[in-house]
């Protein structure tokens, strides 16, 4: 097991900007996360959450700013399998003819040879990952026959099999059953103890309070960032959601 220096930053994003053909999607965004930290990414649809993820994974290029992953470039983070991305359920083609096993095996592709032929260690990693998300009974089930929660767990298993130290999760709790929700929250605690860094986007304010040490409120740029207890205030949330009161978003505070 590699030793984790909890003082070094896993993710450092400095003043990053992303634009698509001149249309600004995100500007002057900053984020710093250390190992073992869970950060919630909160914002409206179109506020740049997915763009932020895309910038961190290198799926889109940033037009300005700097991103360091473990002190190195995004490119070397890709090579080192550092970041895993767990898409939201709507983001995947659920009718694709592929089984749970094959999806999770894709987590290993980056460290395989050019033919992507699994070694013993890859098979073991996939088995373990599927066991951790409790899908061992569905190894060869096509993903089209899974429930929303099971599908979500399949992609979590892929991230586990990848052995990434940074997990980016797009709406991990949307459209999942209670059992999956419980399993995911347990996994989050385990990941935290393993020193993984987690950035998750969510619409559900209760989840932010429950899991996130830190919260990043964005609306094209960072509205507020810091410890959840300090930053996740009704005022900040209202600003983030363009003047809509938080009560109407997640009910009166308990």
């Amino acid at each position: 097991m590699e030793t984790i220096n909890y003082q070094n930053f896993r993710i450092e994003a400095e003043n990053i900007c992303v634009d698509y053909n001149g249309k600004v999607a995100l500007y002057d965004a900053n984020l710093r996360l250390k190992p073992g930290q869970i950060c919630g990414l909160v914002g409206m649809n179109g506020a740049g959450k997915t763009t932020f993820f895309n910038a961190l994974t290198g799926f889109v290029n940033i037009s300005k700013g700097k991103i360091r992953i473990n002190g190195e470039s995004v490119r070397s983070a890709q090579k080192d399998q550092t970041i895993a991305y767990v898409p939201q359920n709507e983001g995947i083609d659920s009718q694709f003819p592929i089984s749970v096993w094959d999806v999770v095996m894709m987590g290993r592709y980056g460290s395989m040879n050019i033919f992507r032929s699994p070694r013993e260690s890859d098979v073991q990693a996939v088995k373990d990952a599927i066991e951790r998300v409790d899908l061992t009974d569905h190894l060869s089930t096509p993903i089209g026959n899974l429930s929303g929660g099971q599908r979500k767990r399949t992609f979590l298993a892929r991230a586990i099999a990848q052995r990434a130290s940074i997990l980016l999760l797009d709406e991990p709790f949307s459209g999942v059953d209670i059992r999956t929700e419980k399993l995911i929250s347990e996994l989050f605690i385990q990941f935290k103890n393993e020193g993984k860094t987690i950035l998750l986007s969510t619409h559900d304010m209760i989840h932010v309070r429950e899991f996130c040490d830190l919260v990043l409120l964005i609306n094209k740029t960072v509205v507020a960032y810091g410890e959840t207890s300090e930053v996740f205030t009704p005022e900040n949330i209202t600003t983030t959601f363009g003047g809509i009161s938080p009560d109407s978003l997640f009910g009166p505070e308990s």
Partner: peptide, 9 residues
């Protein structure tokens, strides 16, 4: 899933 492909290099 091209995004995953890109993410793992």
């Amino acid at each position: 899933d091209p995004r995953h492909a890109k993410t793992v290099g």
